[in-house]
Structure formats: C-alpha cells, structure tokens
Design a protein around this nucleic acid. Structure first.
Lengths: 191, 191
DNA sequence: ACTTTAAGTGAATGAATATTCATTTATATT
DNA sequence: AATATAAATGAATATTCATTCACTTAAAGT
C-alpha cells in the first residue's frame, strides 16, 4: 500500500561503510560520507539503521557470519580429522588473505566499545561448530588436550598477524609459504 | 626564573589515559575526562601535550618501549639460543599477562589511524634486537628458515589472543598451561 | 619584598557531525 | 485516476568535544 524499501540499499550501505572505515578508521567515519558513498541522502540512512552504532554492529555481524559460513563450507563429515583440519585451516587462511578488509574490520571492532556485548556474543556463537570440531580432535587424541579456546587462539593468532603483514605489503605470501605456515600451525597443536 | 613543570603530572596523565581508553575505547576518550582523572584542569593537559593525537602517540611509544625493555632485560649473551629463547618467550608472556592493559592498549592502537607513521616506525624499531636474535637462530639452523617477520607473527599472535582471553576472564592461565603454550610455540618454529 | 615568568585554571568558543523533520516523491491499493 | 502510505531527501538543529585564552597562582631570581 506504499512505497517499498529498496533491498539493494543495505548492501550498498555496508560496502560504503566498510570502505570508509578502512580508509579513515572508525573515528573518521561520518554518516554523511557513508550516505554519499552509498548514493543516498543522510536521512535515508536512518531509515535502514537506527544510528551509527547499530550500523557498525550489524555490519560486524554480517561480515563475521559471512566469513565463518564461507570457512565452514568446505567441511565434509566423511573426512578424517587431519584432512578436515587442513581443509579448514587452508580455506580460512586463503579467505583471510583474499579479503583482508573484512578481516581487518572484524579484528578492529572485536575489542572496541562500539560493539555491544550482544553483538560480541552473537559473533562468538558463530564459532561454536569450529569449537566442536576441535573438541572432537582432542577426544580422538589427535591434538593436544588443552582448552579449546586456547587451541583456537593458537591457530587464529598467527593468521591474524600474518594477514596484517600481507595487507600492508611488508610480506608477500605465496603457496610455499602457506605450506610452511600450515606446517607450523599443525606442529603446534598436534599431540 | 619561573614556576617549574610538575614531573609527576605526565605519569598521572598517562595512567588516566590508559585507564580511560581501556574503559571506553579511544572514541570515548575525552580530554576533559583525562584531565579530571589526572586531577588537573583541561587547559593544563595542553601544557604537557600539544593535543589529543600527540598524547596518544607518546603514550603508545612510552608503553611499547617499557614493555620491550622489560622483555629484553633477561637476555644474557652467554646463553645458548634455546635457553635464551625460552627466557625471552616466558618473560614476554608473563609480562603480558601481568600487564594486559598495556598490551591491549598497544594492540588496539597499532593498526589505527590515530598513530602517526613516525610513531609506528619508532615502535617497530624497538623490536630490532629481537629480530636480530631470531635471525641468528635461523642462521644457526635451529629454527625454520623463514622471514623473520613471519616467525615473529607466529610467536606473538597466540600470545596476543591468549592474553585477551585471560584478561576478560574466559581462561585462567596457570604455570602448567604456560609450559604447554611454550611447547606449542617452540614446536611451531623449531626446525 | 618585589618582579618576572611560566604553570595552572576552567569557562567560553567554535568546529565537527550525528540526528531530526518538514517536505517531496514513488508505489501499491481501491 | 485518486488516495493513502511509507520511502527518500537534505537543510536545519542539537550535541558533543577539542582547543583556546583571559585570568590567577606559584616559584625563582634580584
């Protein structure tokens, strides 16, 4: 009975926000700039997102969800633990290198007061399947018997740091290096 | 010939800034709040620091320098590589756990537009001795032959992540876990 | 004691920018 | 075609701070 919302606007806003945040840091993020970049009026932004905080929180969750989904997409229940682990690690690392913007955004906001507790929790929840997977590797006696959170940190930590190096051009990652890095990751957690 | 500056004010300002940044994120950091917390007038802040950006940059460098100095303090040229490595790793990890605020602050700002290029450079320079140390381990054939920056990332990444877990109470690190973590770090880089 | 100089003060300023709102436009329903 | 409704607009408003500055206070030299 009235004009409908334009579905294409939310992705446009997300893209604009992501680009601007990475360019200027989130301090520099201005709602007016987001609107201009997404080709809509400032006020229109507020039809789709209640305010700046909500925009950031929803974008964060959207990106994290996409990323985790993409990572898990290679999982195949018939694989052995070792095979599945390599697939997952490789996939995650590749994704992170290919879309460092997304990773940097997520990283940048994870430990910031801009994110509400709720968003953080929802984000953490996404990693549950991965935790279950690792817990299974522990139960099978394939990887070290340690708190899963710790194993995850051991795996994610280097990736986060290395993607940052790669992103700012201080280190070029080729396939051989990737293999070496996988070997390091595996050596650190295997029993 | 005039009233002298009060040496105790800079540490007070640093402490106040550090506390407030960790509480509210650096978006929320207000110069008026820093002044109140450090028990001086807003204007006085500007006698000691030209502006907010300078304050953040100097605090960053101050903290990083302290940290690196403290870490390197255990180094002893007569130690073997393995012994020296364990000492350094252990020391660094312990320091990070004991002063997570400092680490979180450094982490938070390292990849932020608030930091000037110059500050970043000066900060990186502090790690030179550590890079030399690792390069030596490579030359001796004790650790994997890989870019030093990469080895550093592999070592620092997990520590950063694990300190965050420890900081927000989701994981308690005891001495046994520390040994396990060291074993993981070593396993990942040894030849 | 007096003078000079710089530190210290905090209210006032002004710039930046998030959000609102009166108005216009588009579309779905009748 | 007419009407109703909600989207879209962007100028106007409100708020939030970083920074300044006119003034006060304290210390050092004479």
């Amino acid at each position: 009975m009235a004009r409908p919302k334009d579905d294409s606007k939310i992705p446009a806003i997300y893209e604009a926000t992501l680009r601007l945040v990475l360019e200027t840091g989130f301090n520099g993020l201005k709602m007016a700039d987001v609107a201009r970049e997404a080709k809509l009026a400032t006020g229109t932004l507020y039809i789709y997102f209640k305010n700046k905080e909500v925009l950031i929180n929803e974008l964060y969750f959207y990106l994290k969800k996409n990323k985790v989904t993409q990572m898990m997409s290679v999982s195949d229940p018939t694989d052995s633990f070792q095979v599945a682990f390599k697939k997952l690690w490789w996939n995650y690392f590749t994704i992170s290198l290919n879309e460092p913007e997304r990773m940097k955004f997520i990283e940048q906001f994870t430990h910031t007061s801009y994110l509400t507790k709720k968003t953080k929790q929802q984000g953490d929840l996404l990693l549950k399947p991965l935790e279950v997977f690792l817990a299974d590797g522990i139960k099978q006696g394939i990887i070290k018997k340690l708190p899963v959170a710790l194993v995850l940190s051991q795996l994610m930590g280097p990736i986060i740091e290395i993607v940052k190096l790669h992103y700012d051009g201080s280190l070029k990652i080729n396939s051989a290096l990737k293999e070496e890095l996988f070997a390091m990751a595996w050596a650190s957690i295997r029993k």
